[in-house]
Design a protein around this nucleic acid. Structure first.
Lengths: 235, 235
DNA sequence: CCAAAAGTGTTTTTCCTACACCCATGT
DNA sequence: ACATGGGTGTAGGAAAAACACTTTTGG
């Protein structure tokens, strides 16, 4: 395995992605742990010389999650000086590569574009990449200390997600194709971290006119069978 | 005057700023016209190697408007391939510099971070910069055709401004220190492009609890004197 | 028949809108 | 006095929240 090639990527530009998933109970994000370091970071990457920014992020997500057609939203670009930590970057590389040169484009200053993704938790088998040892889900309310400014980025992503939740019913992207109203409400509550009124929630969601109702699901519980819904996409 | 130095700035990274002002009647933005070309563009610039992104934008704004402490908001980063037009860039440079080399960092691919600024129109004496011949105010509803993807950027900035108007009472940044309720309403109407109800607008603004009322202004008009207000900053 | 969850209906409250009224000021 | 613009009060309606009732299912 070799170091990423400086001629292939745009220097000084990176992206970091906050990948949200919903376990059925809690809102989670995907975090990488670097090999032999105990250090955690957001999955991120670089932009190829002739590749649109959005596409670079999609490509990275596809490599990590195996998923295509992921809901992606750009939320902020981070360009402070404090975020740059060449010595940390060096240690990460040295843990994996025997020969790390004195100078390298990865040790220079980076500006990073932050994206968040909403994906169906059940469809993902997280894949470690070249730099990371493992990649796994963590509760958003129990995120470990992350490298660089990544804790700050996660916080900003969460804020953005919360304030834009209602527009376009973002939360459906966290669920399978078909879901019950209860599941949708649970996603909502996990993101906003507050209980919603069941009856009013149902009314509000249906009033948006973008949900389609399907046949009932006989779950085997000792209670009335719930309808299934799907997202009636015309966005 | 010489070409910008490649060692001083981060390659591939630019910013573009949409600078909003309020004339008393209409919402306006600052546009540059390049010397001897008839081409219009947004004021923008580059980031120095050891300069925070936000600071680079502030610096550019200070150069163009003479103003410090400007309200600035980052809204989107543009990274498509179509936005890159090296031939256009070349023509701009050739109109000003006798010797333009075949290869130059300005002809390479750029990713641009979009910011918008809200400033007090009455305080500004726009200053042309090294590349531009003139800089002036244009009505947002009569923006000429702009270079690169700048029309798109303006549109995105406007959308962002409109949807975030209410949070933190953004519009006060377009007015002098002290202003009447009528003036505030006019700003609001200019941005949203729709009339507001006078009584309800007043109630809504005051209910935010961030306006401070001062003594009345005796304007000399044949009518009741309005209160003056200022922004009670604790944001 | 009971408990639990789901669907729907009803009441209450809150908020927004439109309108009206009164006040201050210059002509 | 009156025209003009500014400040505030209030009735009506729409939307949201709280609550209640009914239905379906397994035990």
């Amino acid at each position: 395995m070799s170091l990423p090639d400086s001629t292939q990527y745009l220097p000084h530009i990176a992206y970091d992605s906050v990948i949200f998933g919903f376990s059925g109970e809690k809102l989670k994000i995907l975090l990488m742990e670097y090999h032999n370091t105990g250090w955690f970071a957001l999955p991120g990457g670089f932009v190829k010389v002739s590749e649109p920014l959005d596409e670079a992020v999609s490509r990275g997500l596809k490599e990590r999650t195996g998923l295509d057609q992921i809901y992606l939203e750009q939320f902020h670009t981070f360009g402070s000086l404090e975020r740059v930590k060449p010595d940390v970057m060096r240690k990460i590389l040295e843990a994996q590569h025997s020969e790390v040169p004195e100078k390298h484009w990865l040790f220079e200053r980076f500006i990073s574009v932050g994206y968040y993704a909403l994906i169906d938790y059940t469809k993902v088998e997280p894949q470690p990449d070249a730099l990371s040892d493992s990649i796994d889900w963590y509760d958003v309310d129990a995120v470990p200390e992350l490298l660089f400014d990544h804790n700050f980025i996660v916080q900003k992503a969460l804020e953005h997600l919360r304030t834009h939740l209602d527009q376009k019913l973002l939360s459906v992207n966290l669920l399978p194709e078909r879901f019950t109203m209860k599941e949708l409400q649970q996603v909502y509550e996990a993101i906003l971290d507050e209980k919603q009124n069941r009856a009013n929630f149902q009314r509000k969601m249906l009033s948006l006119g973008i949900l389609e109702r399907h046949e009932k699901l006989y779950s085997g519980g000792s209670h009335k069978a719930p309808f299934l819904y799907s997202f009636n996409s015309k966005n």
